[in-house]
């Protein structure tokens, strides 16, 4: 009886919290502009699926945004995970004071907000401003800290016997890294990548300052430009179609990997 009550309450909460927002986006992205302006939750009286999504793909710069988002997200995640794991190994095992000081700085970089204005200045000085490369390097530098911090804890909690034994057997350091360290760090690197992918895919603030022109615009940037392009009142049908298409790639990945994502986040997030 208490369980019935609990799940009824949870369902009643989930309806406005999750279901209605998603439904609003989906159903209004199918309506013509005038009908979507009412922002109702009813089914479309006239359907305008092809028109709306056609416009978003064509004028909304969706496809270019998708390519640009992939072009920055993949390198950032790969760089953060592998460089972070390598650094965590060094920080976890070395007793050098210099490296311990560097580790402390990595920790600070998690807590303190990145300074965006001087970053623009710096990228300009390095002739990297406005483009994807400068953005990738900046995001990598600002997100490495958290992965290093989580992974170093993991390395420290693990005895080094396995690595020593492999070294005695003649394995080189890169071999030990690939064969022993990476498998060992897999749970924490997986959790790190999940949070990182969500973070980078949805980043708007950094992109706004660091990426210039529609040729480099990632999906959030293209959504903002598209929504701001129509003055005063939004074309809700088109904005929602863009929102849906922008969110869809992440949701698709999540649907496939949700068991591992949820298990990883509930079991691996705070350990180490």
């Amino acid at each position: 009886m208490r369980a019935v009550l609990k799940y009824t309450a949870l369902t009643l909460f989930a309806i406005p919290w999750v279901l209605v927002p998603i439904w609003l986006v989906v159903v209004n992205s199918f309506k013509p502009a005038g009908e979507a302006a009412e922002l109702g939750l009813g089914l479309p009286r006239t359907w305008a699926i092809a028109e709306n999504y056609g416009i978003v793909l064509d004028r909304g710069g969706y496809l270019m945004g998708l390519v640009n988002s992939l072009k920055v997200t993949v390198p950032i995640v790969v760089a953060v995970v592998f460089l972070g794991a390598a650094a965590a190994w060094a920080f976890g095992r070395s007793r050098s004071r210099w490296l311990q000081a560097a580790y402390f700085v990595m920790g600070l970089s998690i807590l303190l907000p990145p300074s965006i204005i001087p970053t623009v200045y710096l990228l300009r000085a390095l002739s990297l401003d406005g483009g994807s490369l400068g953005y990738v390097l900046t995001m990598t530098g600002c997100r490495l800290g958290i992965v290093i911090f989580l992974a170093t804890g993991f390395v420290r909690a693990f005895p080094r016997d396995l690595e020593d034994a492999a070294a005695i057997d003649g394995a080189s350091r890169p071999q030990v890294f690939v064969r022993i360290l990476l498998p060992l760090l897999r749970p924490v690197l997986f959790v790190g990548s999940v949070v990182l992918i969500i973070n980078v895919w949805n980043d708007f603030f950094f992109a706004l300052f660091l990426l210039q022109g529609s040729a480099n615009a990632t999906l959030p940037l293209s959504l903002f430009q598209f929504a701001s392009g129509t003055l005063q009142s939004l074309n809700w049908n088109l904005v929602f179609a863009h929102v849906l298409l922008t969110t869809l790639p992440l949701v698709a990945v999540y649907v496939v990997a949700q068991k591992r994502v949820l298990a990883g986040l509930t079991e691996g997030a705070l350990k180490g």
Binding site: A90, S109, C142
Partner: peptide, 19 residues
Amino acid sequence: WLPWALPAIVLVTVFFVAP
């Protein structure tokens, strides 16, 4: 150990600490 941490240290120094 330094070479293993160096790429990360350089990236964080240039793109986080310097700004």
